[in-house]
Write a protein that binds this DNA or RNA. Sequence first.
DNA 1: GCGGACTGCTTACCT
DNA 2: ACAGGTAAGCAGTCCGCG
Length: 892
Amino acid sequence: MAQRRLDEFSISVTKTQEPKAEAPPFTESLEKERKQQGFPPAVLENLPPSYFVSATYDGKAGKVLIKLYEPVSGRIYFWYDNTGHKPYCYTNLSPYDLEKIDRLMKHPGFDHFEIEEKFDPLLEKSVKVTKIVAKDPLAIGGRPKGCIRDIIPEDFTKVATIPLSAESIKVWESKIKYYQSYIYDHGLLPGMVYEVKNGDLVPKRLEEAEKMIQKIVGTFKEADAEELQYIEQWAMLLEYPAPKFRYVALDIEVYSPIPTRMPDPREAAYPIVCVSLYGSDMQKRVLLLKREGVREGSERLPADVQIEYFDSEERLIRAVFEVLWNYPFVVTFNGDDFDLRYLAHRAENHGFKRDEIPIEIGKRVCLLKYGVHIDLYKFFFNRSIQIYAFNNRYRDVTLGDVGRALVGLDKIMLEKGIGELTYTELAKYCLRDAEITYKLTSFEDELVLKLILALSRISSMPMEDVSRQGVSRWIRNFMHREHRRKNMLIPNAEDILALKGKTTTKAIIKGKKYKGAIVVEPVPGVHFYVAVMDFPSLYPSIIKVWNLGYQSILCGHTECQTNLVPDTPHWVCRKKRALESLLIGSLRDLRVQWYKPKSKDKALPPEVRSWYNIIQGALKVILNASYGVFGAETFDLYCPPVAEATAAIGRHAITQIIKRAEELGIQVLYGDTDSVFLKNPSKEQIRELEEWTERELKMGLDVDKVYRYAVFSSRKKNYLGVLEDGSVDVKGLTGKKRHIPIFIKNAFDKMKERLATVKSPADFEAAKKDIIQTIRECYMRLKRREWDSLNELAFNVVLGEEPERYTKTTPQHVKAARILKESGMELKAGDLISFVKVVNDPHVKPVELATKNEIDVDKYVAYLHSTFDQVLDALGLDFDEIIGLTKLERFM
DNA sequence: GCGGACTGCTTACCT
DNA sequence: ACAGGTAAGCAGTCCGCG
């Protein structure tokens, strides 16, 4: 019932009668109109419910600027700070001392001092600090020299009346982006709904969402008051509805005299010959530059595509800019480094005035003066997004691969260079790229934008930042937000490290900082009925249950020193909850107890399920990284003993489970980090194990899945399991690695399909025969050189670095890359190298350059051998025997 | 000069 | 710029070998 009301309500607030603010075709009158209206868009005294989508510091105005997206009109409105908030940092020097620092007092950006009482989480007590308030953010930090944050420790040691070490002079919070600091101080929530009333920015309260939040909070019966507070806070961020977005996908094509070379966007030396725009209002436009000697082309484009020819490039660019002044969201694939950068520089080359260019060029990003630019390349490149949000469905971060994997749409292959295409060929090619970019944004009900919105809410970051930065920044920012909310000083990384930096365990891998998880030696063979039990989000659970955080680990109380982390000398505070423990713990609880199950609940309307699915995905990404960040030097709250303690407790937990399972008479076949694979356990045994874990470890242990049967070799992280429904899990086997030749992969997949049909031990005999057949066939085809194309034999390996930067060794793919480079190919880190193994000297060759006869067939047979060995061992088969038989046959 | 044992580098994977 | 653990293949080194 409540669910339904939520839905109705979201309609009345955000349902945008399909925003109809159409992208107007280029007209000079429209541009005039815009100028008359004035830019930025009129700051209204009153604005209907709108989404906080972006924030920045406007240097000209000297104020924070917040961009609000109003979904009914589909427009962006600007709101400028009217509270007089100013940038600042803290120090432990008194104003009296600070006044002695000449360079500070005379600094043009210095404003005034204030004295504040803050809680110092490392000293575990309240302290008086001086707030140094500045006129502009760059005065605090950001300029290479002469910033307030550097001046203080540099100069005070000289003027101090008593000798002081530089380390004892502290400056805090000087590296926080000003608009973030503003967001935290005003308790603003990016991604949420606001109104402007009499010029003030005020949160919009949505009754139905609020009711839902209370309902959710009510289901957490075991949480204490402090935990409930956090659960409620998160639930608010996650329950408020998302808008329908109005956006346009943009892609440009540039003429290049050398077809294989990408034109440099910083020089923008060549003309932009085509721009495609694909809008959420279903506008599809292709803007083409008229050039001499280019033919029309015979193909036709779909009727709903609007083709526009331009005599001058300048007018074409103006038409594109009109669109960039119009849409609230502009989506590109690599627009930061190419499309927008090129457009902006090309416009400069044409003599456009600065305020005619709607693009703000940064070092690594390109933002829009009006709307929000989302660069999907940056977003999909994010490893956490790739793995956890999209389950590794795409492997290369290219428009073609991501498009193929997520929306079933590939790039158009070109046989010629851009300069040699006819107008229609060029239009088609360019439009397809914009179409893929558009569909990557629109698919599954605008999943990508909604995911970014959800992450923006969780992390308190503008959508642009959240889509470009990594998970450690998201986590850092919500932790910073909570420090400010609780009036805690945000500690400096070096202070945390100096006080709590030591690790004590020894990593198995050379060069790592501490010991990680346990992997159980598998029991080789085929096992029927295998139940996999695991701890749902083990590490976040540990952080919650054990109260882990930089404050609580190795705390100052002697009474807590007996609360030891197993396998380490570290102790954990018993008196006060750590922020991280509360934040991560409450997020975990919400995902496990509410969003994950509800996203699959058929009783809920599909829109709610789909939103919940996005939320649980966003939470998954964050939770999966929430332990790792403590062990990452680049994380602002880096605290190695917290990471070490988490892993140690994890080892303890799985060890206890294994011990208990064996005591219950269950055979443990395998286990990794947070899971145990149990051979044919009874219902009672499972229940006992669950109950024991809950009671003794205070953590949940669930049956994650049940394999009809599983195949283990003696290798860890290598197995194959067939589920009840016949689907097959393949983990770590060479046959699924992406670098292996398709030729071998196909044979492996054939075996996999055959294994999926095996239901009982008796079925195995027939399956084995078929598998033998498959292998023999593959072997014979190799020996007889019967493959369709050399591509089938190509290994595909990613170049981790520029080819020249391999100095220690020269791996095969680098050899191939260097050969390619000699033949004029441009190669950089991240490129995929396809090569085959050949008989003659360097023993590798890029596929493009190789011929059939030089293939080293024996190398491929050896590879086939090792790929299949991982499974054959367990099935009691022997590769050599399989091959040997065929040799015998040939003999007879 | 060559092969085997060994270490280290690199990539791709697992949780 | 989340962590550590594992597999595999190859490059490079060292050592013994009349």
